[in-house]
Nucleic acid binder design. Structure first.
Lengths: 300, 300
DNA sequence: TATAAGGCTCATTTTTTCTGAGCCTAGATT
DNA sequence: AATCTAGGCTCAGAAAAAATGAGCCTTATA
């Protein structure tokens, strides 16, 4: 008989976080995505929670889950608490490393938009460390360790530039592309996640050309590189190919351009107080100096 | 090259909780106590946190730790967030099992004060499930899964009765104890955690008797039982031996009684809304009906 | 000078958490 | 009607995190 019996464990924090995410996002799969685990892990956490509580938090349907009244009524408090925790963590991080800025962005943006601007940013503020994390999805900034997010978004708040798409190709190809209908004879490169681009652009023409199915790339930057190397036509996003257009590695053979409803957006969910490093970086990126383009690539 | 690189892990919740407890309580040992782990675990958590932050949260001194300014400035937000979380958990528990009441108390109180009252409580409210957890220390109610705490405490708020101590013994002994000075000839039983009791009581006499060092018990209820069985004299706490005195299994051989500054206290850190089970149980226990004492023990 | 308090270290063990592969159900699609 | 497909569930095994325990270190206090 132990004198100090193992204290009844309090509810495990991880399980609570899983519940909160699942409840807020309306599904285990979505919660798993946000927390960076597999759905099975969420299932297990929620089940454990329900077990110790002795009451179900979700009603399972074959098409997903729905909160029970019990879950519904307790969600707001948990969301608020975890938000507060996330903000506290963010503040702590900021206080511990005041001259470091963490940016979350798409891999394509990281390589094609952000990276070219970094040397000048470093020159402008040598004491600031910029750390970049490439993510496929914008993170929940209240919960993640990022100061700034840089993604394409419909939300106009914080937009840097609109998202304009049009075909681009290596200069050598341009002569053979007199009208959009010449396209059908060329490979049409596209990004694996932006599969609509070609069709959207084609619809803007009075006589939409047939777009042949070309190779798709999971890394947009790779598609750009292939295009530079003459692999075919790429449907370009202006913000991401501006550098290549400016220094002549790519050209836009047709005048037709389509402005999408979204745009490149830089934002933060935490206040950017003047004088702080994240504020400086955000301001600096907004002024968007794609300074001194690299000299045109020399092909020996 | 994985397309979805393992996302940079956010700060681990457990480590944050360890930091918060250590910071709030002013030491790793205290935090370990509150969280029910060993101090080494706290050390590891805090170190991990400091590692990922790249800055120290505590200044180590040979006599303990002191918060750095960084730690100091971030503590309040964490305390608030974890409090909010604890309250959310409490509300969730309450909502999930509305007719269950969890009481935290000392083992001695559980056995000698609470247990005798439970049959009548069950009779009064058959639908309420009372669960009792014996702890050596009052828990932090904002964080622990208890509805009510029942401990000896200096705090007058919620006091049920004062803490009065005096020697007790089996009836057979009483005849041989005419004055307190007879005590020296008997074993003086005491609780392992209430070692002062005999001395405190002795000091109240004009001529303090010598108290021989008797056996100590880590379970007060065991000491009481031994006393009933004639093992010697026990320094009794009125609240805990009242039942035994009432039915004659124990007697108080001397009139001198010492009222300590503390008292038996029943409290909750969460609001006890009228109509809820915890409120009912608290109210009922306050009325303190030590109903129908057990019939005097029959020794065949 | 001894002791006690409070932390640290580190190898080991225990517990928790996560994965992966396959299964199940019910709308949607064909 | 057959067949997707989305979303969850299950379960065994693997991986990661957390905790222990025993010994060490440092200083204030007795």
């Amino acid at each position: 008989m132990p004198v100090a019996p193992p204290r009844p464990k309090d509810l495990p924090l991880t399980a609570l976080r899983a519940f909160e995410a699942a409840a807020r996002l309306g599904g285990f799969a979505a919660a798993a995505q946000e927390l960076g685990v597999t759905p099975g892990a969420i299932t297990a956490h929620v089940k454990q929670l329900e077990q110790t509580l002795g009451a179900p938090l979700f009603a399972r349907t074959p098409r997903g889950v729905r909160l029970t009244p019990l879950g519904q009524q307790s969600l707001p408090a948990f969301t608020a608490a975890f938000d507060a925790l996330g903000i506290a963590v963010g503040d702590l991080r900021a206080a511990a490393a005041p001259r470091t800025v963490h940016i979350a962005t798409l891999p394509a943006i990281a390589q094609l938009w952000l990276s070219p601007r970094l040397p000048a940013l470093r020159a402008a503020a040598p004491d600031i460390t910029v750390s970049i994390t490439a993510l496929e999805q914008p993170p929940n900034l209240k919960r993640s360790p990022y100061d700034l997010s840089l993604f394409f978004s419909e939300e106009p708040q914080g937009r840097l530039c609109p998202d304009v798409i049009f075909p681009v190709c290596a200069p050598a190809f341009a002569a053979r592309l007199t009208t959009p209908h010449c396209i059908s004879g060329f490979p049409c490169l596209a990004d694996a996640t932006w599969t609509e681009d070609w069709d959207l652009w084609a619809q803007t023409l009075s006589v939409p050309p047939t777009i042949p199915q070309g190779p798709t790339f999971s890394l947009y930057a790779l598609a750009v590189e292939e295009t530079v190397n003459g692999a075919g036509l790429l449907i370009g996003h202006e913000a991401l190919v501006a550098g290549h257009l400016a220094d002549g590695r790519l050209v836009a053979p047709f005048p037709q351009r389509l402005t999408l409803s979204g745009g490149l957006r830089l934002w933060s969910d935490r206040p950017l107080r003047p004088g702080t490093a994240p504020r400086f970086v955000a301001d600096w990126l907004r002024r968007a100096p794609l300074a001194s383009p690299a000299p045109p690539a020399t092909h020996p």
